[in-house]
Design a protein around this nucleic acid. Structure first.
Lengths: 138, 138
DNA sequence: TTGAAAATGAAAATCATTTTCAATAAAATA
DNA sequence: TATTTTATTGAAAATGATTTTCATTTTCAA
């Protein structure tokens, strides 16, 4: 299970297992849409009412550092986080309900190669994100 | 010249031409890298020392609304703006000096079509951004 | 079981951005 | 050109998100 795996990872990296971290992990690991710190706070407090917003920030920071979550960039803002994709994948976001799906984007190599030759840039990284409407919302 | 064109556009949309706006436009229109409001402020004040940061924010807001500038998303933050591309283009950013170049990305249609069929999403928009090192910085 | 060290929440501090407001400047009108 | 209307301005205050500080609590290794 993702939750337990994340907790193990935290532990293996020298972080202690606490009620607050369990609540944050339980929240973010099982949600398939991007959540802002405040949203995580609101949800996670159902499990741990004593949880502080500061601890949410601190826990998200650690989860990001361990690449267990990643920041999601959107037109409305870039403060939200989501469980990170394992392999090199890209995000597809529903503009209606926020649901997120990851997909493979290896087809980009040719395009990147072309751009590299055309511009003279050495290209090291790429961001691709798709926005649309999921089946359920259509 | 881009600067004059932007000023004309502002005027045609009912906004007045002021020293402050000229300074902000002169700054952003000629810079080929993304600038944060504070950076715009620092540069534009050389031309108009009385310029206030608030006015920078307000002017950037109007320029974005007229699609003359666009927000640039980066790992370090998403507060920076750059002169917008005319056609549908994507950004290539130098991770060393920040220089930005636009490129065409029409090759994406096939990929997007595949993802759409695979996921059931209707895809309405896509973001693609490349990061690397420009020729001068290599 | 105990004690050192990490983690916590609350409050304060910081930083970016927005709002308020009285003074000023642009441009429409006379 | 002088006048008037109205948008625009900068400063200060307010806001909202995030970070830091700190005394207290909790975890976990010994």
């Amino acid at each position: 299970m993702t939750t337990d795996n994340w907790l193990t990872q935290l532990q293996e990296n020298g972080y202690r297992l606490t009620e607050a971290r369990r609540a944050v992990v339980d929240t973010v690991a099982v949600t398939n849409r991007a959540l802002t710190p405040i949203q995580v706070f609101d949800i996670a407090r159902e499990q741990d009412p004593a949880l502080g917003l500061v601890t949410v920030y601190r826990t998200l920071e650690k989860l990001e550092e361990l690449h267990l979550i990643q920041r999601v960039h959107q037109p409305q803002g870039c403060q939200a986080f989501i469980a990170a994709s394992q392999a090199h994948q890209h995000l597809l976001l529903c503009q209606s309900c926020g649901q997120a799906k990851f997909f493979e984007g290896d087809d980009l190599d040719a395009l990147i190669d072309t751009i590299s030759k055309k511009t003279g840039y050495q290209i090291h990284e790429h961001w691709l994100q798709l926005f649309g409407i999921c089946e359920a919302c259509q």
